[in-house]
Structures are given as C-alpha cells and as structure tokens.
Design a protein around this nucleic acid. Structure first.
Lengths: 223, 223, 223, 223
DNA sequence: TATGAATGAGGTTTCATTCAT
DNA sequence: AATGAATGAAACCTCATTCAT
C-alpha cells in the first residue's frame, strides 16, 4: 500500500521544488522576463518536466502567487484572533495587509498580473478555480468580520458587507499600488509619509462606515 | 513656405493613422496578443514603417494609452469648468473619472500595463518622459483643486494636497479595477450596485477630508 | 549504453540533413540569394531549428564548404597514394585539384566567400577554427610532399616548402578562378584550350622548382 | 549653348562627389558592411539621390573599382614606357602590379567582389560593359607586349599570347590574394619573404615562356 | 534634380510549448 | 516520469530600393 503513497509524496515534493525555483526566478525577473529555461535550470530539471507539473508558465506563476495568498491569509488570521473588539480587528486587518505589502513585496507585486485580465491567456481552468477558492477564503474572512461589526452596531446597518469589504480593500490596495511605484519619488521628492497616508485613508473610510455611537466609543482608535 | 509644413502635417497624419490602427488592434487583443504584423496590416503599411514612427510595440501601446490620457484630461477639464463650488468640482472629478471608466473602458484597461513596471522592457526614454508629462498634467489639475479647497476652508488645513489627491485617486481607481474584473459577478450574483458603491466610497473619503463647517454647508451634496 | 550514442548519432544525422538542404540551396542560389527560410523548407524543419545547429547563415555556408574541403582532401589523398615517384605525385596533385574544379564546381565556388574576409561578419569562432584546421590538413599534405621532393633532390634545396606550396596553389587557383569566370568566352571566342593552359602553367612552375638532374630524369613527364 | 554644358559639368561633378564618398565608405567597410545611408551621409546628399547617378549599390561599387583600374592602367603604362627591352618591360609589369597591390590595397581588394559571380545581382548592363571595356584595355596592353616578345623571339613562338597573359596574371594575382589574407601569418609565423616569393614565382613562369636564347641573354634579369 | 518616407525582404533571436523517446 | 530536441510565432533590426512630391 505504501508505494502509491510514496509516489504521491515524491510528486508533491517535486512540485514544491519547482515552485521554489519558479518563485526565485519570478521574484527576480517578473513574469515576462522570467523564462521557463531559467526556472528549469534553477530547479535542476529539464524544461519539459515543468510541464508535467504545471500546464503553463502562467499557471506556474499563479501557483507561486497562491503561496503569497496563503501568507496573507495567515497574517489575516493572526490579526483577527487577538480577542480585541471587532473594530480593532478590522483595523488590524488593514495593518496586516500593509505588513504583507512591506514584508512580502514580491508576492504583493504578483497580483499585478492577477489583476490584468489581458495577460491571462494560458491559465488553466483548474488554476483559475484554485485561485478563486483562495480569493473567496480571504474575502470570507473579511466579510464575516464586517457582518459582525454591523451586528454589533459598530458599522451602520445600511451598508452592504460585501460592498464595504471591497471599498476597504480597494482603498488600501489602490494606495499601496501607487506607493509601490512611487515610493522613492514620494518619500524623497514630495516628503509624503506613506504609513500616515495609508492610515489616514483607512480612517476616512472606516469612519464613513461607523455608527455615530461607535465613533464616540472608539474615538481613541483614530488618533 | 508651405512645403515643410505640409510634410510635417502629413507625418503627423501618418502617426495618427498608425495610432488609429494600433488602437483598434490593442483594444481587440490586448498588448500581448496583438502583433505588429496585425497592426501594420490594419494600417495598410509595412511593418518596418511602424518602427519608423514608434521604437517598439510597447512605445506604440503607450502612445495609444496617452490618447486615453487626453480624453481623460478633457473630461476632467470640463468637469471642473462649470463654475460650481470647489467641493462640487472635486465631486465632479470623481464622476468624470467614473465616466471615463464606463465610456472608455478600453483606455482604462491600458493603464494596467502602465502600472506594471515589470512589463516595460522596450519602452523608450522619450516615451517614458512623454507619459510622465501627461501624468503630471492630470495630477496638477487635481492637486490644484485640492489646494483651492484647502484655501477656501472646505478641506481641513492639516491634510497634504498631494497625499489627498493620491487617496482620492487610489480609492476610486482601486474600486474600478475591481469592478472591471468582477462586474458581471457583482452585479448578477451579489446584487451590488456599482455606481452606488463608488459614490459611497468617495463620500467616505471626501468627508474625512472636509472641515466641519463644510460638512454642514454641503450636506446636500452627499445624499 | 546505446541511448546516448543513438541520440548522438541522430543529432549528427540531423546536422547532415540540414547540411544537405543547405548545400542544395547554396548551390542553386549562392550565399546571398539563398535564404534561411528556403533552407529550412528544403530541410523540412523550422527555421529556428537551423539555428540550433548552426549559429548563422555564414556558419552554415562554411559547413557546406568544408564538405567540399573533405572531397578535395580525399582526391588529394588518392592522387598521392599511387606509389609513383614524388614528382609525379605532385603533378597528380595538380590534376586532382583540376578534377575538383571540374567535377565539384559548386564547392570550388564557395571558396570565393572564404577568401573574401569582408564578407565574414557572422562567422563563429568555432567555425573559423574548424575551417582553419581543415585548411591546415590540406596544406600539410602538400607541404609534406614538397619536403619529400626536396629531400629526394627532385626539387632544389634552396626553395622553401611552404613558399613553394603557395606558389603551386596560387598558380593553379588563380587560373581556375579566371577560367571559371571566362570559360565560355575563352573556349568559344578565343579558342584557348583550358586544360592545356593549366597544365602548361603548372609545368612552368614545377620546372622552376626542380633540380637540373630531376629535369633530365623526368623530362617525359612534361611532354 | 552654355547652359546645357554647365548642367552637364555639374552633373559630372556631382557624380564625382558621390564616388569620392562611396570610395571612402567602401574602403572602410567593404561592400557588405557599407550602407547607402552612410554613403549618402558622407556625400551630404539624400540616399535616393545616389540612385539618380548610380543604378545600384553594386554599380556604385564597381564605379569605385574602375577608378582603381585606371590607377592600375596608369602604373602599367608607366612601367612599359621606359624604352627598356621587352622582357624587362614584362618584368616591370609584374612589379607594377605588385606596387598596385602594396600601395592601393583598398582598390586591390575590391576585385574580390568582381571575381565572385554570385555577388553580382544588381549590376546594370551599362556598368558591366564599362567594366569589360576597362578590362580589355589592360589585357590589350599586356597581350600586346607578349606578342612583341614573341615576335622578338624572347618568348617561344609555340605559346599563345592570351594564354600566356592569363598565366602571368593568375600567377601573380593568386599569390597576392593569398598574401593579402595571410600576410601577418606568413611574415610572422612562417617567416616567408613575400616579395621574394612573388618574384620567384614570376621568374618560374617567365622562364618557362622564354626561348633558350633569351634565357641566356637575359640571365642577369633573374638573379 | 533632390529627397524624405515607405517598404519588403530576410537575418537573427527568444521562448513557450509540444513531441518522441 | 523525464527530457532533449523541435518548432512556430513574433519581436526586432537592417537595408537596398522605390515612390511621390
């Protein structure tokens, strides 16, 4: 009975090695500049072997990206498991995303691709589904928290949880994208404090969502 | 006296024709799927002629994108030339951007490329500079308006105009990106009203920036 | 044990097929008029496959040319392995070269390229080295024979073997070049007997190199 | 009447300027590496203007080459106008050719092209005819001299003048070609004295052509 | 006459992907 | 399962030549 399992384990190990190699190359070169040849060399495998494990370069790219998603998910889980009040947890979520941005910039950048529909020409349906599941998991976490905040009357009850989640995410993500491209320019030429900008934007949006009661209650959170 | 000028005009016309053809192909296929051969065929020119006018496919792509920038700039100019109060003008700006998103989706999508630094491998310095100038022009318009709002005590004086501009833009842009990808899903499966979402998010952010006095004065604007 | 070897053999076979196709096209069209596309079509391979085996069109051209060198070398070997006296062998060498010229005109003509340094712009160092080795092999054979003739006092001992080899070769080659271009004109308009011309020129040069003793001894050779 | 003539003169002058520019570029780069653009730039003319004066790049190349022919012809004329005995004049001819080789190497090298039939694809019939006339003029001079030598019983009367001319030329030319390519190698690695080699080869051939009487008479010429 | 622009052809290169073993 | 080889597509580039003014 052990043989099939060992085979399976070995196969998984090999997938992991390939992923490792791909990650290294994609981080260094980006999707376009990275070549399958280079990844194969890095993995010490023949180029065609990569195709036994991943259907296309884009699939491989997304597989690496999903590792990033997992990292992000873990950060989100930790940030929301502190037992603090819901509003604080939502604030924590923003901080966790910012931490992901700062500490895992390479993963963060991979989402550029994910967000450019034009580029996806070779993504397999399996991979699309896997990405979608991953995405859902994260959205689920965020939306659940917002629902809780509404239930607790911290957020107004005339807002839609999904809509709200998207606003929060888009606000943070849009800014971080911009920061990623302009970081040196902003910091050096324009003297903008990036951390403060992000926090302020988040504050704006959150306050828009909060009930008046909650605003008074949690005033200290936004100083 | 006219010959040199006519030549110049014709050359410009030819650049325009190429751009027209490129636009058509890029809109249909996207950057990667579009080929120079196809653009040349569409323009009824030899492929090498394209290279007389644009140094690379990416340059050509950006040239088309800059047409989009101009469209956007015109929309922005119109939106801010109505003689209305500054805050309304800023609101108009958001609406104008949304209009750009809805009516010129193809141009909107081209910015994906612009925002993915990894993809730029063949962009000439001239084109980079041209894009930068274009960008500056639009930012200048927005930032100018924000300065005016601060001077008029509509916006708080403890916010930074550039920072504020970026927050406004990132908020709208991040959402529209998301909408672009998820539009059918959101509308059909999740019943989210996209227009309302965007407007609401903008309201949140604007209100965060406004002085208390302005909030009372312009309460009607946000209903 | 056989797999690697079979692979090797197949690869060699493929190189051979490419060479065969290239030869056909080069013979028909010459270096400039031949296109890689045509060669690829002839070989029933993709154009990029050609570049897996040869680094440039010029390399491929020289590879074909070297086949000619081998043919020539074989003719030279046969001509000098008859067991006849050294002088006769040297005479045979001239005849063999003439035979090469007549029977392998296409190969002969390829040397035009080899001899025009201006034309070599894409020749790889490997190919240059290979050509050089080939060249050396042939010169070695000729020079060896001349040394023998000197040792046997058939050739004067005040001549330099290398110098002598070059004179013999240049004399024959220069004439054959001329013949190649002017053959119809000479034969038809000027009634020059080409075989006789070549033989006579060779006689002149050989006699200049021979000792008086040898001249008497081998007088019959030159009638 | 003067206008047409002035026009004609100006046109000739322009042809000359183009030739001058082409010569400079061809000397530096050779036929293949030289571009019409570069020649046009050198001539300070538009590229298409070149085509008003010469039908193709190859025509232009040959026009430059013919300037070389004229230089050679002048050298040959001088060498044969000294009033010395015919055999000496023939010897002088060889020296003159060698002088041409040494002093006008750039022109000498242009003949590589002339001698490679494969390369002539764009030569106009006019230019071919002009080259042919030029060629004839030089051959005429040489053959005339040989006829004279035969008439004076310096050369044997069983040799054909044309055949003899070709042998003399091919012998010298073949050697100089070889020298041109191998000069550094021969001089440095093989210690061959090039001048001596050439002279010796010429001696061999000349002696083969001479009558016994002449050999005695002109023995001093070959020491 | 002069020319800027256009062009077609083809060499070179790079790569993701596929194929045959 | 692993891989070396093949390949097609396309970008990029260069240039002689032609065209329209």
């Amino acid at each position: 009975m052990g043989i099939a399992e060992r085979k399976e384990r070995e196969k998984e190990a090999r997938r992991g090695e390939i992923l490792e190699a791909a990650e290294k190359v994609f981080f260094e070169k980006g999707l376009n500049q990275a070549t399958m040849d280079e990844i194969a060399a890095e993995a010490e495998l023949g180029k065609s072997t990569l195709y036994l494990y991943y259907r296309s370069k884009e699939d491989l790219y997304l597989a690496v990206m999903m590792r990033g998603s997992e990292v992000m998910f873990r950060l989100f889980m930790e940030a929301t498991s502190t037992g603090e009040p819901t509003l604080k947890l939502i604030r924590n979520l923003g901080d966790a995303y910012y931490e992901f941005f700062k500490k895992h910039r390479n993963y963060f950048r991979m989402y550029y691709f994910f967000e450019s529909p034009d580029l996806h020409t070779q993504v397999s349906d399996e991979m699309k589904a896997a990405c979608f599941r991953n995405d859902e998991k994260i959205w689920g976490l965020v939306i659940g928290l917002i629902r809780k905040a509404i239930a607790e009357k911290v957020f107004r009850d005339d807002i839609d949880p999904q809509q709200t989640a998207v606003i929060l995410w888009a606000n943070a993500n849009g800014l971080m994208r911009q920061m990623d491209r302009m970081e040196p320019y902003w910091r050096d030429a324009m003297k903008i404090d990036l951390d403060a900008t992000l926090r302020r934007a988040n504050t704006f949006v959150l306050q828009g969502m909060m009930t008046d009661k909650a605003k008074k209650q949690f005033a200290g959170l936004f100083e």
